[in-house]
Each structure stands twice: as structure tokens, then as C-alpha cells.
Design a protein around this nucleic acid. Structure first.
Lengths: 172, 172
DNA sequence: ATCCTTGGTTCGTTCACTGAACTCAGGCGG
DNA sequence: CCGCCTGAGTTCAGTGAACGAACCAAGGAT
């Protein structure tokens, strides 16, 4: 009990949330899940996190009801990890943090831009469409490569994200 | 949790942001800063994080321009840590994560509720006021104790947060 | 029969977090 | 002047988590 991934004694919803999504790599796993990544090997190729850590994080997220593990083919048996409704509600958190990073820590312009898939307008700081004056759920967001995106990554996920893509749609 | 510092190879604003605020305890430090905590000993008493970790996290946040270290008295020399404009822009991230935790991980009702200080209405999922139909900056948010808040904590910060309080205002 | 792919598990090394003790400087009470 | 208190750290040994490379297994494909 001495060490741990939890925050005992913090009577706070933020601490509870961080026990689920605050561990190293977890937010990047969620980001990839929103981008359409669903398979273990794609998460691994794109993140370059140790496999054991990835296994553990995916299990934690499934236990918390953020991801669901689904069999998508029987032979050979293969599972994929998809966001649940509860997981999709984390989109504002992921988006606002990406937006903050783009604003304050990105030299050379945005790496990716996010648009309302209906009208094409770029989302504001909270993930709302300034034209439609409404918040945009993840399923209606289109992600596009931005001017600051480097071109060195060669893994399939990075390549797929070089073209505009709707969130939550599987990459392949 | 033992977070490493950085995410090399991730050409992504989220990874850059997590290198600043993704380490263990850092988000809770920011939450406390929004709640009005400014002094090292108050952070320490409220969080119960090891002093060495707290020292390092505060230094990282100051280096990143999220917090500013300010001398508030000369004799004896004492500094306080206050959110900068850049740090205050993290409010939507902190709020949406607290909101998600309250919705999905809090038994027995919300621990704290957040209101538009102008009109008293409770904020929605993105931190906007449903009455005024506008996003509410941290300085205009009032935090109130909720029905799920336990009463066991006895540190000065927890006690001060038993009464409604405007964000960013110093606790004492 | 052998190789390849997917999705892991195992394991030794390295590194970050923990808690307790220690430091230091400036008041303060007697 | 002496000892004690407070705020704000620093130091350090012990431990648990992350790392990465190797290994494993089931089911095709050649």
C-alpha cells in the first residue's frame, strides 16, 4: 500500500478520474482510440510503449468501462478495443488538452486541426463549432493534418492520419 | 505510478502537454491552484505528496510558464505559486475531467459543484453556464461543497473549501 | 514443414516515487 | 543570548513501476 497508482485520501472526483486515466501512456491510448485505433498491434506500433504496459493499461480501461473488448473475427480469434459511451465522454478532456498543447507548446503551427464534420469549421477552445454554436461530439469531428505535422513517422497509423479522417471511425 | 518524464517520438500536442502536466500529482497541484492554494505548505498538507515530488512538480510548472513564483513577503522571504494566464487556460481540461469523474466514479452524489458566480447556475459538461449560454472563465466560477463530500479531512485547505469560494481567490 | 502475424507474457535492469530524517534561515518568547 | 517554532525545502535508502529485449502460442499462408 506504500506505493501505488492511486491517490488515497483525496476525496475528489479528479483523483478518482486520474486513477483511471492518469497513468503514463493512458491518455495517449485514449487519443489513439478517438483517432480510430482499435487493435493492440496498432496501439503498440504508434505509441512505442512497452507491450506489458500497454496490456495493463488496456485492461485497466476495460475494467473501468472506458473501453470495451470485442471479438471482431473468430478464426483466428482477434479482439479489438473500442470506446464505450463512458469513454467517448472523455473527448472534451482530450480535446481541451490537445488544444492547450497546440496553443502553447507547438512551434511551427498546429500538428493537427479539428473540424465540425457537418460544416467544416474549425472547433474552438472547448470543442464547439463557432458557426453552429453547439458542442460537437467526437463522432462529428473531423481531424486533418496541420502545417506543423512532421513527416518522419512511417507506422500505418501515422500514415492513415495524413488524410482527413472522422473520429471513432476505424482506421482500416 | 512512476511516470517517466517524456514521450519521445510522439509528434503530438497532447504528448507535449502531458510532459508538462501528465506526471503524477501534477493535475492535483493544478486543481488546488484553481481552488486558491498558493503556498508550498498548503499544497503539501492538502495533497500529502512527498515534499521532494512537490518541489519538483512546482519547478516544472514554473519552468513551463503554468505557474509563477512570486515573493509575497520580504522578511522572512516567502514565495507563493500562482497560475499564469497560460495556466488558467488549463481550466477547461481540469473541469471536464472533474466533471467526468463526478458523473462516472462518484457514489453518493457530487463532492463539489461548480457555478457561474454571476448568476449562480450550475455549469454544464463543458464548463459553460446554461443560463448565460457562454463559457465561464475560472475567475468567474464559484465552487461549493456537494452532497457527496466527506467530512473527515481536517487540513486547513479542506476546511476552507467547506464554504462556497470563488476560484483563483487565495484561501487566506 | 516452416514461416509469419497478432497479441500477448517473462524477466533483468533502470528509474521514479515514498517516507523519514535532516537542513537552513528568519522570527519569537523568555 | 538561547532555544524553539515555522516555512520551505534537500538528502537518502528502499521499493515498485517502466523499459526493452526475448520468448511464447494459436492460427493461417506458402
Amino acid at each position: 500500500m506504500a506505493l501505488g497508482r492511486d491517490y488515497p485520501g483525496q476525496d475528489c472526483a479528479l483523483a478518482r478520474a486520474l486513477e483511471v486515466i492518469g497513468e503514463r501512456w493512458t491518455m495517449l491510448v485514449l487519443r489513439d482510440a478517438f483517432y480510430g485505433v482499435r487493435r493492440f498491434s496498432d496501439f503498440h506500433d504508434h505509441l512505442a510503449a512497452p507491450r506489458a504496459v500497454l496490456t495493463e493499461r488496456l485492461a485497466t480501461l476495460v475494467d473501468a468501462g472506458v473501453l470495451a473488448r470485442r471479438r471482431y473475427q473468430q478464426s483466428p480469434p482477434r479482439d479489438e478495443y473500442v470506446l464505450t459511451a463512458r469513454g467517448r465522454e472523455l473527448w472534451p478532456t482530450v480535446y481541451t488538452l490537445v488544444h492547450w498543447g497546440e496553443r502553447h507548446l507547438s512551434e511551427g503551427g498546429a500538428r493537427r486541426t479539428f473540424h465540425h464534420a457537418g460544416c467544416g469549421h474549425r472547433l474552438d477552445a472547448l470543442g464547439c463549432c463557432p458557426r453552429c454554436a453547439a458542442s460537437v461530439p467526437a463522432a462529428d469531428v473531423e481531424i486533418r493534418p496541420g502545417p506543423g505535422l512532421s513527416v518522419v513517422a512511417t507506422d500505418p497509423v501515422s500514415l492513415a492520419l495524413r488524410t482527413p479522417h472522422r473520429l471513432l471511425e476505424p482506421l482500416r
